[in-house]
Nucleic acid binder design. Structure first.
Length: 617
DNA sequence: TTAGGGTTAG
């Protein structure tokens, strides 16, 4: 059309831009904008909907300033922003946790005379719930009601999700009952949210009961419901049951989707079963699902866990060239990998590379970088990142503050830790039990036991929650100082509060008695705990955890070695088809390959996609 | 053809 200088109609033009914008590939959004400019040149008169699609594209790329600038540009074409325009930007800002910017935009929306509708309110509710600010979410709901807009199933579902995220599963279920009373019927999303929430807090029984309950009430489980169950089995390391569940999904007539496969791939990688992970990736492709950013990120994660950072970095670069969308998770994964490897320079270089690509880090990625810097005793640099976070419009979390406080404590800068703690309070964040434990640990390791005891007593007298770690920290330090009586008082106090004692408590006491040369007391203490049976149970648990067979014995089989080597060499010279042939042959022979061989095969599956320059032509 | 909730990766 462009070549023939034919004017497309508006529908053709909008459809094409919409397709490009929504097709998740590296250059598709840029192409969408190009189609827009070409169409204008060919004489098409755009409408608000055209701009709304372009604005969606900007939002998907995280380019919010450009999205907002389109609102002004619209006027030149006689178009005016509507609810869709504002809701699109508001929704994506909220999704990214940029609530301050969302609030400003809402103001602008009102000034331009566009009335917020139910979607607008729901978007705000979801934004606040997502960031755990449930009080503010309730205020939005009150405002909704005042504006004669009644909360609907979406509003309830988002609030239920917020409650579940905060571990308040009982409140979430109460709200479900409340919505039923208000004649808003819970739907499959309500149940999925609750089921997921139950599994997240470890109440799997309740989760399974809810699955039965939804069926009884005539709410049909969908792929998401099944995926939540599959995820749970994977998390528990029960991979056989996970794959059995997938078989059941297929039998029940629901098709496993991309998420199902990505969940399984992740599960197998975490279980160290790279052969099944590879098989799933291959199957995913065969079933017509494209390997996407998530699949890529899962593999990146696995490579980082295996400490194969060069490979991970090379995969990131080649995937980019092949048109995969890299996101902040891709970068965050590798950044964390480098930090764990002690390589702050490479981690920070990647951070800059991410920024250059205009990929905007979320609070989680900031937390990753901040934690990485703190672990490498670069807490001052972590504070700089923290300030950068604030400037970017993101809201920090308790974790963010705790990480930095911990960093200062680890460096022995307890005073600075307390300064940052004060900053946390000034900014209306509530120090939690973790903050308390970090500060206590900081004081104790700097020999300020009296100050630690003061803090401990004040904390308890304020009625704030403590846990086993709090007690163990104090008990260990008291023992080290030889104040065994005070330590034992705390042991019985922690027993009264059902917080222990556990193996850490026993180890602290035994260790201190031994190093004080009180061998008889130590032995007596040991026999006492063995009598009670606690210690045995604990140590048995530890022993079980330590049993891991990472490499299967079959790997030492000469056939396996030869095949693995050949596959790696073929993949390195990009002869993936030949590598697959060897893989299939060895599979038939029942020869297991080495972990590395499976990893290169997985990389091969990712890299086999045509490179983006070829795809555009 | 355009906006909001639940599942996957850091």
């Amino acid at each position: 059309m462009k070549r023939l200088k034919k004017k497309p109609n508006l529908l053709t033009c909008n459809t094409l831009i919409n397709g490009l914008v929504k097709f998740p590939s590296l250059h598709s959004i840029r192409l969408g904008k190009q189609v827009f400019h070409d169409s204008i040149r060919l004489g098409v008169i755009p409408q608000t909907s055209t701009f709304n699609i372009l604005i969606l594209g900007c939002c998907l790329e995280g380019k919010f300033n450009e999205a907002v600038s389109f609102i002004e540009k619209m006027k030149d074409f006689g178009c005016f922003p509507d609810n869709v325009t504002y809701n699109t930007i508001l929704g994506h800002l909220c999704k990214k946790g940029r609530l301050n910017e969302a609030r400003d935009l809402l103001q602008d929306m009102r000034e331009k005379g566009v009335t917020p509708n139910r979607n607008t309110f729901n978007i705000l509710v979801s934004g606040y719930c997502r960031t755990g600010r449930l009080n503010e979410a309730s205020k939005v709901i009150e405002l909704m009601v005042k504006n004669d807009v009644l909360p609907d199933v979406w509003t309830y579902n988002m609030f239920i999700d917020g409650l579940c995220d905060g571990g308040r599963i009982d409140d979430a279920i109460k709200l479900r009952d409340e919505m039923e009373n208000s004649k808003v019927l819970p739907d499959v999303v309500t149940y999925n949210t609750l089921i997921n929430g139950c599994f997240a807090v470890g109440s799997s029984d309740r989760g399974f009961r809810l699955v039965e309950e939804m069926k009884e009430k005539g709410v049909v489980p969908n792929a998401v419901t099944h995926n939540i169950l599959v995820k749970w089995y994977c998390k528990e390391g029960r991979m056989d049951e996970a794959s059995e569940r997938v078989r059941m999904i297929e039998e029940s007539g629901v098709s496993p989707d991309k998420v199902t496969y990505n969940t399984l791939i992740n599960g197998y990688c975490k279980a160290g079963n790279f052969s099944e992970a590879f098989r799933m990736m291959d199957l995913m492709g065969r079933k017509g699902f494209k390997l996407d950013t998530i699949t890529l990120n899962t593999l990146l994660h696995a490579l980082c866990e295996e400490r194969k950072l060069n490979k991970a970095s090379e995969l990131l670069t080649s995937a980019y060239k092949r048109g995969y969308l890299l996101d902040e998770v891709s970068y965050g994964t590798l950044i964390m990998g480098y930090f764990k490897d002690g390589n702050a320079d490479k981690a920070l270089n990647l951070w800059n590379e991410m920024k250059e690509k205009e990929i905007i880090p979320s609070i989680i990625t900031y937390n990753t970088a901040i934690a990485g810097l703190c672990q490498l005793a670069k807490t001052e640099q972590a504070v700089e990142k923290f300030n950068e976070l604030l400037e970017s419009g993101l809201v920090p979390e308790e974790t963010t503050y705790n990480t930095i406080i911990h960093g200062f404590c680890r460096e022995g800068k307890v005073e600075k830790a307390f300064e940052f703690h004060n900053k946390m309070v000034e900014n209306s964040f509530k120090p939690d039990v973790i903050t308390c434990n970090i500060l206590l640990c900081g004081l104790c390791s700097e020999g300020m036991l009296e100050k630690a005891l003061n803090l401990f007593n004040t904390w308890i007298s304020k009625g704030k929650a403590v846990d086993g770690v709090t007690y163990n920290t104090m008990i260990a330090t008291l023992c080290k100082e030889g104040r065994f009586e005070a330590a034992f008082n705390l042991v019985s106090e922690m027993k009264d509060n059902n917080l222990g004692p556990d193996q850490y408590t026993y180890n602290a006491i035994l260790g201190a008695l031994t190093s004080a040369g009180r061998m008889n007391d130590a032995e007596e203490f040991l026999s006492k705990i063995v009598e009670v049976g606690n210690f045995q149970g604990q140590s048995l648990q530890l022993a079980e955890k330590n049993v891991q067979s990472s490499e299967s014995p079959k790997e030492f089989d000469p056939d396996s070695n030869a095949c693995s080597k050949e596959i790696i060499e073929l993949c390195n010279s990009r002869r993936y088809k030949d590598a697959m042939r060897i893989f299939e042959e060895s599979n038939q022979k029942g020869v297991a390959l080495s972990k590395s061989a499976y990893i290169v095969l997985m990389e091969g599956l990712i890299k086999r996609r045509k490179s983006i320059s070829k795809a555009i032509k």
